[in-house]
């Protein structure tokens, strides 16, 4: 039992953290009444995914994926002098970082658009609470 727990949790604790964060974010996105809080939940949700990707690319004892000026893997890394195949293990995987740079930018752009929509809704209806908005809409003429 203890071994099973160690296998599922001990080596994967980072994934557990990301799942908890993701669940928190998703819950806030669905359940919160205030639109701004919903967007905060959405942001947490996206950040959790970023955490997942970044933790995919980590390697034990590896350094950042920036070589020195001659294209060698920096000497601080633990595996520097063990041949090229192992040397690559001394540098973190750059691909997830690249992907997450993209995802972060996408998240920021989405959040900006969402906030501007919330501001426009506040300008039109005077509230950002979802239940009040629903009541307002019901009293609205179809063309309004």
């Amino acid at each position: 039992m203890a071994e099973f727990l160690w296998k599922t949790i001990g080596h994967h604790f980072n994934f557990w953290v990301y799942i908890v964060l993701l669940m928190l974010g998703l819950w806030a996105t669905i359940a919160k009444n205030n639109l701004v809080k919903k967007l905060m939940g959405l942001s947490i949700f996206q950040s959790a995914i970023i955490l997942l990707y970044v933790s995919i690319g980590t390697k034990e004892g590896a350094t950042i994926p920036i070589l020195d000026h001659h294209g060698h893997i920096p000497s601080e890394s633990h595996h520097a002098d063990v041949g090229p195949e192992i040397a690559a293990h001394g540098v973190a995987n750059p691909l997830p970082h690249v992907l997450m740079l993209t995802a972060i930018v996408v998240g920021v752009a989405t959040l900006g658009v969402a906030l501007s929509l919330v501001q426009a809704i506040y300008r039109d209806f005077g509230t950002v609470e979802e239940d009040e908005l629903l009541r307002e809409i019901k009293s609205l003429h179809p063309d309004g």
């Binding site: 599922t8 994967h12 359940a31 980590t58 034990e60």
Partner: peptide, 25 residues
């Protein structure tokens, strides 16, 4: 929301068991 979130979490955890270890080069 709680039900949806719990289902999502369960699906995600189902996959985690087969993940490679954290920091495995």
């Amino acid at each position: 929301a709680t039900i949806a979130v719990i289902i999502t979490g369960a699906v995600l955890l189902y996959g985690v068991a087969d993940f490679p270890d954290f920091g495995d080069p």
